[in-house]
Amino acid sequence: MPDHLDDLAAALPQPRLDALRAELARRAAASDLLDVAYRTLETELGTLLLAATPAGLVSVTFDGDDPSATLERLAVALSPRVLEAPARLDAAAQGLERLIGGAARGFDGALDLSLAHGFGRQVIEQLQQIPYGQTRSYAEVAEAVGSPRAVRAVGTACRKNPLPIAIPCHRVVRSDGNLGQYAGGPEAKRILLGVEGSAA
């Protein structure tokens, strides 16, 4: 009987489940229960995964095609109250699209830096000072944050930048002119620098 009952029970079609989930995200936001909203975004650089807290955009990663690992990390680091809520991220998505397409020179939405700690946070804040269309070497950034010998640590901090594109870690390149590493891959870095007119 259990199997038969289960077979007979009303099945929930996928579109209906999707609609219920969208409504849940809307009500969760209205009740201040949406701690981490996320959406994916197709771009020239690949499929991005964007996440936001009520304070602002908190994470941009290049794994939108397979976001589960990042979502699990965000659930642990920020809050397990994670829901897909594209509408909450529409403005941020447009801001990033404008940056990638060269229609904007800076990200004008709110940013939440709570995923960057300690030295990494210092470096990230320094990166925000590099003007559009210019680059700095890892050594120059290390010097700027007052730790001229911490060149490698600056490299690590750039790679771990929780908000690439919005915070321009792509503007940090190697002193020898080599582009250096990038979370989104070297091609993504080349595209972003090319859009800014500062391609190596």
């Binding site: 979502l71 659930a75 397990p80």
Partner: peptide, 13 residues
């Protein structure tokens, strides 16, 4: 670790 709530909804919705 605690699973993102979204995956709970997907799994049990």
């Amino acid at each position: 670790t605690r699973a993102p709530f979204d995956s709970i909804v997907a799994q049990h919705g």
